[in-house]
Amino acid sequence: MKENAIPSPRNDVTDRIARRALERRGAHYVSEVRGLLDAALDVMRARGTASRPRVADIVTAAGVSNETFYRHFPSKDALVAAILEDGTERLRGYVAHQMGKESAPQGKVRRWVEGILSQAADDDIAATTLAVLWNAGSVGEGFMSGPPSAGGALAPLLREPFAELGSIDPGLDASLAAHATFGTLTDHLWRRARPTDAHVDHVVAFCLRTVTAGRTPRNPDTDHD
């Protein structure tokens, strides 16, 4: 038998140290990405729709190097897409939480509309949202019209209440309602106008009318598939 043919026993110490090093690196990378996202958002907010920042502006604000930037993002467009995705997830969580406060489907729809249009109700939030959308080049096409899409992230929250209200196709109706609502939001953002209670009421009525016109709402206690 050749010498050293028997494999050496597993070394738990080296494995543990290696895993610890990888965990530290992972945590450091998470911190780098968060810093880049926050810095880019700050720069975009400050510039508004006057000019689009360069990668150099973003890394300077974040206090990192170009190498750090390109370790995580292949381009500035990829960074903007990540900011959109991050904002979408935050908004989705907020809207879902608000909808959870209601038991009736009509109330859930109202909370959904209110949550979306609230992005134009606060001057700072509205300015930031508009700046990000302008950097994404999608303001004229609707809020979050590119990946990640509003329909993909926010519209599904309407499927259940729309189904309860008697929608024949809850998914399609939710998508249509999302387009109308986010289009309204974009209009308000671009005009720097806060949506009034009347605007909210009108959008809610539109969504409900679209779903319930000529249909009988489902009764979950008596209606079965």
Rank of each mutant, 00 (worst) to 15 (best):
E3V: 09
P9G: 06
V13H: 06
R19W: 00
L22S: 05
R24F: 05
R24Y: 05
V30M: 06
S31W: 02
V33E: 11
A39Y: 02
D42W: 00
V43L: 04
R45Q: 07
R47Y: 02
G48F: 08
R54P: 06
V59R: 01
V59K: 02
V64P: 06
S65W: 08
N66E: 15
E67C: 00
Y70Q: 11
H72N: 04
K76L: 15
K76N: 08
A78K: 09
L84N: 15
R90H: 07
L91E: 10
G93T: 11
Q98S: 07
E102W: 04
P105Y: 07
Q106N: 00
R110S: 04
W112Y: 03
W112Q: 03
G115C: 06
I116G: 01
L117E: 10
S118A: 14
S118L: 02
D122L: 05
D123L: 04
I125R: 15
V132H: 04
V132E: 01
L133D: 06
W134G: 12
F143A: 11
S145T: 06
G146M: 05
P148R: 12
G151N: 15
L157F: 09
P161I: 03
A163S: 12
G166I: 09
S167H: 11
S167P: 12
P170E: 13
L172H: 15
A174I: 09
S175R: 15
L176N: 11
A178I: 13
A178R: 07
H179V: 13
H179D: 06
T186P: 06
R191H: 13
R192L: 08
D197F: 01
D197M: 03
V204C: 09
F206C: 05
A213W: 13
G214Q: 10
R215F: 02
T216M: 14
R218T: 13
